[in-house]
Design a protein around this nucleic acid. Structure first.
Lengths: 143, 143
DNA sequence: TAAATAAAAGACAAAAATATCTTTTATTTA
DNA sequence: TAAATAAAAGATATTTTTGTCTTTTATTTA
C-alpha cells in the first residue's frame, strides 16, 4: 500500500510523538531501534519530514527529534502525502494517466470509493492520538 | 496500490477477454498496443499468468492468447494474488511482520476494514464481466 | 516437408527503491 | 574555547522492479 520509506516515516512519527511528549528529544539511534528500521535510512527520511515541517529537530548534545504542537496534530494522510505523494488518494487503480469520470478504467467507481475511505481513515488518524495508545502499550511499532 | 506488473496483468486479462470473446486469439503485439504496455514485458507477465492457468495460449500461426470459460470467471483478486501475492489482503499497513489482533500496529483495525473492502471489491470484479463494459466502450484500458 | 508465425525462454539493461558509509555543520557544556 | 554530541548532507552500494533484446520451441499452412 505504502512504500517502505512511508511505512518507516509513519512509524517514526508516532514513535517520536510518544517519546517527546514529556518534552524530551529523541536521537536517531533510539528511533531506529524503537521502530526497527535502518538507522541512516530513517535519518534521511526524517530530514525530509523536517524540511516539510512535519517533525522538529535540534543538533548537538541534548539535540534530537521532537514534535511541536502542530506536528502532533498532523494526520497520517499528511505524512503519506509528504512521502508518497497523493497518488494513493487520486491515482487510477490500473495505472492509467487519464482515468476519470468521463473516461473511466474498468474499476474506476469501485476504486474511487475505496480510495475515499483510505483517505478518510488517514485524515482521521492523528500522530498525537496514535502515540497515546502506543504509550499505553495497546499498540506496537516493532516487528 | 498494485505493482506495475499487476496493473498490466489486469489490463491484459480484460483486454484478452474482450478480444477473445468471439473465439479469436490475440497476439502479444496487439495486446501491448491495446493496453499501452511494453511488448516484451507483458509477454513475460502473460507467460506467468498462463502457467497459473489464468489465461490460455497457443503457439504458431493463428496462435495467441485467449480465455476459456474458467478464466473468464476469474476475479481481479485472483489476478492480484497471482502477481503481487496476498500481501495487500493480509499484510500490515505499516509493514510489521507480526501485526495481529493480539499485537496490533497503531492502525490495525482501521486497515483491516479497508483491506476487507478492497478484497471484496476485487473478488466481485470478474474478468469476463469487466470486458463487457469495455466492449460497449463504457470503460477504457489505455492512457 | 519447408517456410512462416507466434509464444516461450533466457540473458541483459536501465531505473527506482532501499540501505550503508563518510564527512560536514551546528550546538552544547565543561 | 575545546571537546563532545547529534543532526545534515553527500557519496556510494545493493536490491528490486521495470523494461529490452535475442534465441529457441511449437504449430500451422502452403
Amino acid at each position: 500500500m505504502f512504500s517502505k520509506t512511508c511505512e518507516y516515516a509513519i512509524r517514526a512519527m508516532i514513535y517520536i510523538a510518544q517519546k517527546s511528549k514529556t518534552g524530551n528529544r529523541v536521537g536517531i539511534k533510539e528511533i531506529a531501534q524503537g521502530i526497527d528500521s535502518p538507522e541512516h535510512f530513517i535519518a534521511k527520511i526524517l530530514q525530509d519530514l523536517g524540511k516539510k515541517d512535519l517533525v522538529q529537530s535540534a543538533k548537538g548534545p541534548t539535540g534530537g527529534f521532537y514534535h511541536d504542537a502542530q506536528s502532533l496534530e498532523k494526520s497520517l494522510a499528511d505524512v503519506v502525502r509528504a512521502i508518497d505523494g497523493d497518488k494513493i488518494f487520486t491515482g487510477c487503480g490500473l495505472g492509467l494517466k487519464q482515468c476519470s469520470e468521463d473516461r473511466p478504467c474498468p474499476i474506476h467507481n469501485q476504486f474511487k470509493k475505496v480510495r475515499g475511505e483510505i483517505k478518510l481513515m488517514l485524515e482521521n488518524a492523528k500522530v498525537g492520538e496514535l502515540s497515546e495508545e502506543l504509550e499505553q502499550r495497546l499498540t506496537f511499532l516493532k516487528r
